[in-house]
């Protein structure tokens, strides 16, 4: 998802019998659906897992602005340009809500940014794919934000209070993202030329599988998912939410009059779900390791923006210091008088 394969630092899920009184009390709180708050006691591994997950989620929101920003100056109408600018601004806001939530765990904004810029921290694999046509802007809103919504709705019930509250705020804003994307594609399909319709189908062909990969590999391959579920950081398995996404997306695909590039996709009357083909996990792991189509470009652009902004940050601090000095001198003068 926006946070994929988050390391929990555990070799196996900790047995309750091995817990001291403090940790047992913590687990009782989790079981009772009490939120864990910044000042509450928490196991070190829980804290570290959350910092990894929330910062990875934040980085995804921030890097995710790049593929969309790519089309901002080439939007076909002023209306579409304003909509896209508003969406991108929301994503930046999502990143900031999430950085704030992570900071309540004792890390700093500067540290998290440094980890991103040096390649130590990850962000979602999906943002390492290029946006090659205007239709990609629609497909990203519909599929990528659509997949994110399924994950984020689940995370509104995550056990850490500040993360859950950030998710509630984010979910309120996401629906607009998905609807504007879908409406964009629908307009192209209903009013567009054949070339524009082909553009939509081509975009779905390229983004369908990477969107399914966003949910991460099947859970049973590592203890991380099981531990995250025990802590109620995650509330549902990767395959479960992937299936949920597919089931809700295919009827929307049919309204568009498009197809997905999966010959095995078909409705299964017995299970009440869509069956789908095998995901190319080799591609997923290659992208995660840094070898996707745009990894280098995305990170370089982020670092460049940060460095180009350095003088602004310095000037703002210098100005704030100067104003504070003037203020304290004035209050001293007042005291003397």
């Amino acid at each position: 998802m926006y946070a994929q394969m988050v390391e929990t630092g555990v070799k196996q899920v900790k047995d309750r019998a091995d817990m001291d009184a403090q940790e047992a009390a913590f687990m009782q709180q989790i079981d009772a659906e009490d939120k864990i708050e910044p000042q509450s006691w928490m196991p070190d591994a829980y804290r570290k897992t959350l910092v990894r997950q929330i910062s990875q989620h934040a980085h995804s929101e921030i890097i995710g602005m790049q593929p969309e920003g790519n089309w901002l100056t080439r939007a076909p109408t002023l209306k579409r340009k304003l909509q896209l600018a508003a969406k991108i601004q929301d994503e930046c806001g999502h990143g900031l809500y999430l950085y704030s939530a992570a900071e309540t765990l004792g890390t700093s904004r500067a540290q998290m940014l440094d980890d991103l810029h040096t390649g130590k921290a990850k962000y979602s694999s999906i943002f390492n794919y290029p946006t090659l046509s205007w239709a990609d802007i629609g497909a990203v809103g519909w599929l990528v934000d659509g997949a994110a919504i399924v994950n984020q709705v689940m995370l509104q019930r995550t056990s850490y209070g500040p993360y859950a509250r950030a998710m509630v705020r984010i979910c309120k804003e996401e629906s607009f993202h998905q609807r504007q994307g879908y409406e964009l594609l629908l307009t192209m399909m209903q009013q567009g030329t054949q070339a524009q319709k082909d553009m939509v189908q081509d975009s779905i062909n390229r983004l369908w599988w990477p969107s399914l990969m966003m949910f991460g590999p099947t859970d049973d391959e590592s203890p991380n998912s099981a531990q995250s579920m025990a802590w109620k950081i995650k509330r549902k398995g990767n395959d479960e939410i992937r299936q949920q996404f597919i089931d809700q997306t295919i009827p929307q695909l049919e309204v568009l009059g498009c197809t997905v590039p999966d010959p095995d996709l078909k409705w299964n009357e017995e299970t009440g779900h869509y069956d789908y083909g095998t995901i190319d996990w080799a591609e997923f792991f290659a992208v995660i390791k840094g070898n996707g189509p745009c990894n280098k470009q995305r990170l370089a652009r982020k670092v460049q923006a940060h460095e180009n902004g350095a003088w602004v940050r310095e000037a703002a601090i210098a100005y704030a210091d100067k104003q504070a000095n003037i203020k304290s001198q004035q209050s001293n003068t007042n005291k003397v008088a």
Partner: peptide
């Protein structure tokens, strides 16, 4: 520079007649 700007807590009054409510935080120079 690796240090963050100071942190401010943000409170918003959503409608007249209601109290300000904590909504989150921001970093800022002043």
């Amino acid at each position: 520079n690796k240090t963050d700007w100071p942190l401010y807590e943000v409170f918003i009054r959503s409608r007249h007649g209601l109290s300000h409510k904590h909504v989150g935080s921001v970093h800022a120079a002043d």
